[in-house]
């Protein structure tokens, strides 16, 4: 059913990711482990065409962009993972003619049923975030499942019951939890770090949040960035004055 479930009920679970743009180092571990898990899991296969040829193509559920902001001394580069945001009002679901694309009532995960998808691609047109990729070989649409086949999977160790991308991140830049619960760790994190929505004006109400990069530390008054040459001309001890004299003689 492509009509949306009522997600306004109190206590509505909204599972999603919080992605920290400050600590993401762009290593692609999340993208690779996503591909690895999901090419054998719920969305299987995630086809690659000519993976080692001159023009490889394939469906991936997570893409890591690189952006640059600011000018001159204020310029900074950052890595920007982009995947399904499991929106509260996802048009990708309501446009689906077959009911293959749906939002789960119990936890808000947006999924595609690969057995009923006709591959019309309209859902990918309806998504502002480019979260859905068509699998040419499989003939159906693929998207992030929030690793629905991991997070409830009792055959896995408890610490592994989270999305593959979160588990793989070496810097802890990806967090998984219930964003419908104000007291969850992820909700607290979003609150303390000023987490934001992508394109809130479009009113898709994304569940996933992004944490902004922290201010540069030299600007924030933490560690001073001091030229190296001036380091160590300091405390006036005898040893220091001897080295200083040698330095002068030699220079």
């Amino acid at each position: 059913m492509t009509t949306l479930p009522d997600t306004t009920r109190p206590g509505q679970k909204k599972l999603g990711l919080v992605i920290d743009l400050d600590t993401c180092v762009g290593c692609q571990a999340c993208a690779v482990s996503c591909k690895e898990w999901n090419t054998q899991g719920y969305s299987a296969p995630l086809t690659d065409l000519e993976p080692y040829g001159p023009d490889p193509a394939g469906a991936w559920l997570n893409r890591i962009h690189g952006y640059e902001t600011g000018e001159g001394d204020n310029a900074r580069g950052l890595h920007f993972p982009r995947s399904c945001l499991h929106c509260e009002t996802p048009a990708c679901v309501t446009v689906c003619p077959t009911g293959a694309s749906y939002k789960r009532e119990e936890d808000g995960i947006v999924l595609v049923n690969p057995d009923t998808c006709i591959g019309c691609k309209l859902c990918s047109w309806a998504c502002p975030y480019g979260a859905r990729e068509y699998d040419q070989d499989d003939g159906v649409m693929k998207k992030c499942t929030l690793c629905v086949d991991r997070i409830y999977n009792e055959n896995l160790e408890p610490e592994d019951r989270q999305p593959a991308c979160v588990r793989a991140c070496p810097t802890g830049a990806r967090h998984f939890g219930d964003l419908g619960d104000e007291n969850s760790d992820v909700s607290k994190l979003v609150k303390s770090r000023g987490g934001f929505d992508l394109l809130p004006q479009m009113d898709y109400k994304p569940v996933n949040k992004y944490l902004p990069p922290r201010p540069r530390r030299d600007k924030a008054g933490g560690v001073k960035s001091t030229p190296l040459e001036t380091v160590g001309k300091g405390d006036g001890s005898l040893a220091e004055r001897v080295f200083s004299w040698i330095d002068e003689v030699l220079s």
Binding site: E68, R82, Q201
Partner: peptide
């Protein structure tokens, strides 16, 4: 707006080396 970073944002690295579905379709 799209990246939520505000102001002047520039792309310096694409996520993939060849065109993906999003690029060819949209």
């Amino acid at each position: 707006d799209a990246t939520g970073l505000g102001g002047d944002v520039r792309q310096w690295e694409l996520p993939h080396t060849s065109e993906n579905y999003i690029q060819s379709e949209m």
